[in-house]
Design a protein around this nucleic acid. Sequence first.
DNA 1: CTAATGTCTCTAGCAACTATAGCTTCAAGG
DNA 2: CCTTGAAGCTATAGTTGCTAGAGACATTAG
Lengths: 146, 146
Amino acid sequence: MLTIGKLGSKAGVKVPTIRYYEQIGLLPEAERSAGNQRLYGSKALERLAFIRHARDLGFTLEAIRDLLSLSDNPDQSCAAADAIAKAQLLEVENRLARLTALKAELERMVVQCAGGRIADCRVIEVLGDHSLCATDHLHPETEETP
Amino acid sequence: MLTIGKLGSKAGVKVPTIRYYEQIGLLPEAERSAGNQRLYGSKALERLAFIRHARDLGFTLEAIRDLLSLSDNPDQSCAAADAIAKAQLLEVENRLARLTALKAELERMVVQCAGGRIADCRVIEVLGDHSLCATDHLHPETEETP
DNA sequence: CTAATGTCTCTAGCAACTATAGCTTCAAGG
DNA sequence: CCTTGAAGCTATAGTTGCTAGAGACATTAG
């Protein structure tokens, strides 16, 4: 049995994050020791690794919740899991496209900066006027993890 | 003079967002009409467009605050503005690299899904075991806007 | 046995908004 | 002139995915 700290270091997840996952129901309530400390077995480690990996791949906790409940019922069709992954792929492709446009724009800005005074600075100028942009890099839709 | 709604639709920014920007000091306190409604002139529109554009380019509000204070004092060297833009460019390049690895992994997952039962689903399987991954798509470091 | 970690709960904070509630003001139609 | 509906106001709370802190108990190394 692992304490929360051991579990965290094995899975590469910080301790408060584990407690947070338990709190929002992604992880089941842990067993407790006599002294009320959480104890975890290998199943919890697997589940946490799953969550961690899916987070690394950019899935939201909501999507992960769905994926976990799918993997808890292994007899169903995997169409749902496939759909979630495909949606995530689309999302990522979208962001890639936007980021690529952004990068081009930032490069243009930086290259054109003459290094003189602010009054001549292309960075400031371009930021003040979207029509100076070469591409449309619109509304990156603030979200989290790619 | 524009009302907050007109300003918002001209700049492509939602009304509560404008009030929020005022609240955190990115926009100066607006003039008020007799009936206490905010009124904006063209300077405010420019400033808001600047903010909006910089947000679209992925700058944080903190970076934007700095850029605005630079553009408010146009007699300085533009080295600072240039540095902010360069840092932002690096950031974007980083994210691009990570996203590209992610995309490859997601594509692999999706392609390999045979469409059978969860028990055989590659999506679930890969999520449970990082060693099945072809690339290192590690820790995308949760942030906002690309 | 003591000191140093580790863990516990609870609360508050981060970015960058968005949404809600309950009110006032404004512009246009009848 | 009056009413109705949209748009504005303030203030507060919620969102996502954590992270940080306080103050108290548990465990372990020396």
